[in-house]
Design a protein around this nucleic acid. Structure first.
Lengths: 160, 160
DNA sequence: ACCAGTGTGTCAGAATATTGACATGAGTCA
DNA sequence: TGACTCATGTCAATATTCTGACACACTGGT
């Protein structure tokens, strides 16, 4: 913004590369998830739920970056297939703790294997340390944007 | 898949971190784009079109990772606002080269500045070399997935 | 005990993107 | 020249997601 920043080709933009990677991963994921009759949001829901049982729909929604309403539809589909339970019907108004059933865990196990295989393939061109660095840097980038309310105190870590 | 791979917390998964970063960027982008009355897809279209004038709708769609149909709607909106032109109406059937108008370029200039500011903020926690590395690695990851038809010959580059 | 404030689940409507399909024009090859 | 294939633009229908809104339950303070 200060000096005359030439825009440069789009493929040097974070947004472009990020979208490219996201699309590629998303596409590969629902290719391997389709045989299991699972969508990506459904898989994400199962995965989070396995690691943090008893989460409510709203909490699940926040954890998977969707709205409560969208998560609700996901949960309905999963519940109808007997993959999870929601403490019966409480009529109206309060948090419904959600948990995986045995069938849900079985399904998740298969899905998790498939997805991890994809992620492994995606990271294959990178060395293990480069993989770890990618995750760390990506998380830092996201934090730099979401925590924009505060001034990020930039400490120059001479990492390379 | 071979050895007993513990699934581990989701936040160590590429997919999770990738989605996190994508959501953060997307959200920040349409926050700064909204005052300009531009959506993210619209901005992407303008940006690509500025760098590669004369592109057809289908080519534009591929460049921005959406379908022809979606791009068509984007183009219609942009055209109605006088931000781009499409060589009149050719009735039916053939590629319509698209170009930015002067107004389009002006609008893009403002949008580009805003978006670049966001991207800069996003990459702020990283050193310049780490930023470059992130882009490169991300592109490599995407390529590893989209070019999955071939066996990727893994050449161990001892980079770190 | 009362009452605002917050969080949650759910319903309804709108917006957006996708899939499927078709007609048209261009290029290729016999 | 004619037939075939391919790519493009567009229409229609479907699907997915989001925004807005409401009722209900728990928590805090008074």
């Amino acid at each position: 913004m200060s000096q005359g920043d030439v825009v440069g080709p789009v493929d040097e933009s974070v947004g472009y590369v990020l979208k490219q990677a996201t699309i590629a991963l998303r596409s590969a994921m629902d290719a391997v998830l389709r045989p299991l009759e699972l969508t990506v949001p459904q898989y994400a829901c199962l995965e989070v739920l396995d690691q943090r049982p008893g989460l409510s729909g709203s909490e699940l929604a926040r954890a998977t970056f969707v709205t409560r309403q969208s998560m609700n539809l996901v949960l309905q589909g999963l519940q109808q297939r007997g993959l999870l339970t929601r403490t019966a019907v409480a009529g109206h108004g309060k948090a419904l703790p959600t948990e995986l059933t045995d069938a849900g865990r079985v399904q998740l196990r298969a899905a998790s294997l498939a997805v991890h295989s994809i992620e492994k393939q995606m990271l294959a061109p990178l060395t293990p340390s480069a993989q770890q660095r990618l995750l760390t840097d990506l998380a830092a980038c996201a934090a730099a944007l979401t925590g924009e309310r505060h001034i990020q105190l930039q400490q120059h870590t001479a990492d390379d």
